[in-house]
Nucleic acid binder design. Structure first.
Length: 457
RNA sequence: GUGGGCGUAGCUCAGCUGGUAGAGCUCCAGAUUGUGGUUCUGGCUGUCGUGGGUUCGAGCCCCAUCGAUCACCCCA
């Protein structure tokens, strides 16, 4: 038997780690509830066709597809074999081989849910969702194959009030977690307008992806990439002023306004972003809000505002992302339901908080009392006392073996149990417990019925 | 999918131009048969990731493979 192992990119979470992860989830749940987003869950697996085509080519490649079961009993093995041969040749998704996949995000399954249940939902419908998603990416820093997304979305209203609310939720949650972060916002309509006025209207995605590299490769890098991608000299020339765009948000928007002059769609995006910035910038608790023209990220389905959050003081990709999607439910047959949402990447948030030491000191659910003993009779007494203390709300553990007291103390120390209560022959006779605080070193003998109260202090 | 370094004790690592593998920490026992964390003394620990090859001889060189990791792509 070989040593057991985990599939690539999958991780266990030992109790100490989980205590911290749960802290993040608890904060997010609290904030989500405060803004009126009740929790919802969907299954790990979706129909493959529900997921394909929503995330772009790259996304489709990263779907974990699930092989159909009991293939060996199939009656149409020739067809299956042919389908498999084809899959080996080029990337295809025959339902003969696979009809299900693990979800890639929470937004598309949510849209699917809304379409299936729109009859009983009150719109605008809000929900939060905290569940793992899976991507067959190659793991690296801040990237896992299984990770938790924590989403808030509202569907059924195109109101820009929700753009503002998303920023408020991001700000509230990140502030509460103590993360110094920048919320970047951009707008797909504006980007589409930009593509049009520069003569590349049909290649908005490619154009913006290239633009997105500005902070990484500089203006020259972007121009080189655009040239390599076959964009015309006229387009590149038209974009040039943006590559050296400087100044504050208002000034940048003014430059955009001139550039987008006469382009209705682009102007609409500009108008939207101004509306949102005007209202959201006030009263932020801990984050900075920034208009970032080069922000292109976001999946295929985004149509309006797009968001991305990065943490300061640490090298890590975005920790949150999101945006407005006007037609995601339309793909599933329910048009006219605009949605918007953001997603918190719990695992990256964990990594950031860990690196910056932002987790509060806390017991994290550790047992607070170990009952130690000096013989079988004393151990049995410990079992009784433990039940009384647990009933009183004290997390209590009884050392299982009759052994040297030293070993029992060491056990408590190793497990970070704060108190040890010793029952030996003397205590048994007197109905007391010798209670020692392992942090302060203080010890006192107390009647059993007073122990709980002493520990509560 | 592309590329770069890295796999030696439970952990972190050392190991010379190839010559039969070491340190610190952890762990265990004792000093201390009713007291942990500090101190002192003693002790245990290895398919050198795996499979081939070269060699009289491989932890070290070569090939392959697996794994973790980092970067690119893309993303949380």
């Amino acid at each position: 038997m070989n040593a057991p192992s985990l599939p690539k990119g999958m991780r266990d979470f030992p109790p100490e780690v989980l205590a911290r992860r749960n802290y993040i989830f608890d904060v997010l749940k609290k904030v989500f509830a405060r803004y009126g987003y009740p929790q919802l869950e969907t299954p790990a697996m979706e129909q493959l066709e529900t997921l394909t085509g929503k995330y772009g080519d790259e996304g489709d490649q990263l779907l974990f597809r699930v092989l159909n079961s009991r293939q060996h009993e199939a009656k149409n093995k020739d067809e299956i074999l042919a389908a498999f041969r084809q899959t080996l040749e080029k990337n295809t998704n025959s339902s003969l081989l696979t009809e299900r996949a693990l979800r890639y995000d929470l937004t598309v399954p949510f849209a699917r849910f809304v379409v299936m249940n729109h009859g009983h939902l009150v719109f605008p419908f809000k929900r939060s969702q905290i569940q793992p998603v899976w991507r067959a990416d190659r793991p690296q820093k801040g990237r896992y194959r299984e990770f938790y997304q924590c989403d808030v979305d509202v569907v059924g209203s195109p109101s820009l009030v929700y753009e503002v609310e998303m920023i408020q939720v991001l700000d509230a949650a990140l502030a509460e977690l103590g993360i110094d972060a920048v919320i970047k916002i951009n707008n797909r309509k504006m980007l589409a307008g930009l593509a049009e006025v520069t003569g590349a209207g049909d290649r908005m995605i490619e154009l913006t992806v290239a633009l997105d590299k500005l902070d990484k490769t500089g203006a020259d890098g972007v121009i080189a990439a655009l040239t390599a991608d076959g964009f015309s000299a006229a387009t590149i020339e038209a974009l040039r002023p943006l590559l050296s765009l400087e100044g504050n948000t208002a000034e940048k928007l003014n430059v955009m306004e001139k550039l987008l002059d006469g382009n209705a769609f682009g102007q609409k995006g500009l108008e939207e972003i101004r509306f949102v910035l005007d209202r959201a910038a006030k009263g932020l608790k801990g984050t900075t809000l920034e208009f970032d023209l080069t922000l292109a990220r976001g999946l295929n389905y985004y149509t309006g505002a797009i968001f991305e959050v990065t943490a300061r003081h640490v090298q890590m990709g975005s920790i949150c992302g999101g945006g407005r999607y006007d037609n995601l439910t339309g793909i599933f047959g329910l048009p006219g339901v605009s949605g918007i949402g953001v997603s918190f990447g719990a695992d990256r948030i964990y990594d950031v908080m860990n690196e910056l030491n932002l987790f509060p000191q806390q017991a994290g659910g550790a047992v607070s009392l170990l009952l130690a003993h000096l013989g079988e009779e004393e151990r049995d007494r410990c079992l009784e006392v433990a039940q009384e203390l647990r009933a009183a709300g004290i997390a209590t553990e009884v050392y299982p073996d009759v052994t040297k007291i030293k070993k029992q103390f060491k056990f408590a120390d190793d497990k970070n149990i704060r108190f040890v209560g010793v029952i030996g022959p003397d205590e048994l006779k007197q109905g007391t417990i010798s209670l020692k605080n392992l942090v302060s070193g203080e010890q006192q003998a107390l009647p059993v019925q007073e122990v709980a109260a002493a520990l509560m202090r």
